[in-house]
Simulated scan of single mutants.
Amino acid sequence: MSGRSDQSRDSFFLNLRFLLIVCVFAANALEPLIDASSLANRWYTWIFMFHMPLFVWVTGYFARKNLKGEAGAKALLQIMVQYIIFQSLYSLLDTAFFHVQGVHHSFFAPYLLLWFLASHFCWRLLMLAMRRVSLAVQLTTSILLGTLAGYLPFEGTWLSISRTFVFLPFFVLGYHMTYEKISFLLTPRFRAAAIAGSLLMLAAAVWTSAHLQTGWLYGSMTYTGLGHGEWYAGLIRIGIYLLQLAASAAFLGFVPFAAGWLSRMGSRTLYVFLLHGFIIRGAASSGIYAYIHTTFGTLCVMIVACLLTVLLALPAVKRAVHPLIEPNVGWLFIYANRIAEHFPKSRGVPNRMQSKS
């Protein structure tokens, strides 16, 4: 392939990642309005049809670069440290200012958006465990686990266990995805059809927002919690998977190929993800949403969310909070290796974390 195509391999996924973080910010900003504004409810439902499945999918794609060996061990350590830092920060601020109802302040119950870090850690471990079997087996197993997760006898927010299994199929698909596998789909004809399909789904959200419980799209609730204690409730999960796949494929039509400012912003989405919750929770606790009643107000919320996404993705923000968002875990890695050296070696393989998987 040409050098330009090689460059586009990652730029397409980076562009997608930035568009998705815009959707994440917008959806979370709209959430306090969904009971009061039909427009907010419809946009919120539409975004939730695709934004989490696609975000997990693109996360799986980038995980293939550092899943195994020393790079994989360091990635797991960094996710763990990020989780500890931000679980502590969000919990402290929630106790002092936010006071979100129904939140359990425990390291075993991720604070709202931090479920993604806990699940990402688990997805990597699960992929390592399944890496020696075929894609068909991985996908079948992940769909089965995602379907069975709804039958859990307890709330799935603990350790993010429900979302981990529900969204695992998208991580598996992303891990095995390559630019070549999707490039033939993204022809001008497909892109036009995909955009039209996505807009039709937005229009359909007028109906689905009244008939589809968004809890099905969250992936964190049990079937009983969703009001479906029937033995066949898992079939509804299969239907939701099909809906999410269709909505996700349709949204790909909006994603440009070319590398540029969008790609550069896409390389800093972690900063937006971990920081935007402070803004959302701060705005919600301030009472400002009580003054937003009109369609114009809802549109303003979405516009402000888009502008703040761009702001948080600027290089200056990365320079300011880099040690907090991407903490250096090299010292932990060295320390873990030193501990490992004290354990007996087996089968002649050095007992060191950096040995290749």
Rank of each mutant, 00 (worst) to 15 (best):
D6V: 14
D10T: 09
F12H: 10
L14Y: 12
F18R: 02
L19K: 03
L20W: 05
C23K: 00
C23W: 01
C23M: 12
V24A: 07
F25T: 07
A27V: 11
A29G: 08
L30R: 04
E31T: 13
M49R: 02
V56C: 09
K68W: 10
K68V: 12
A75M: 09
I84V: 13
L89W: 03
L92R: 01
H99C: 02
H99M: 04
V100Y: 01
Y111M: 03
L114Y: 05
H120M: 13
A129S: 14
A136E: 08
V137T: 07
Q138Y: 02
T140I: 14
L144E: 00
G150M: 15
V172E: 01
G174F: 05
T178R: 11
P188M: 14
F190A: 14
A196P: 01
G197F: 03
S198Q: 03
L199R: 02
L202V: 06
T208K: 01
T208L: 08
Q213Y: 04
S220H: 13
S220F: 11
L226R: 14
G227I: 15
W231P: 00
A233Y: 11
Y241Q: 04
Y241F: 06
Q244Y: 02
A249H: 01
G253T: 09
G253K: 06
S267L: 08
R268M: 10
G287E: 04
G287I: 07
I288D: 01
I292F: 04
A305P: 05
T309G: 13
V310M: 08
A316R: 12
V317I: 12
K318S: 14
K318Y: 00
R319T: 13
W331F: 15
F333H: 15
R338P: 00
F343L: 15
P344F: 07
P344W: 04
V349W: 09
R352P: 02
K356A: 10
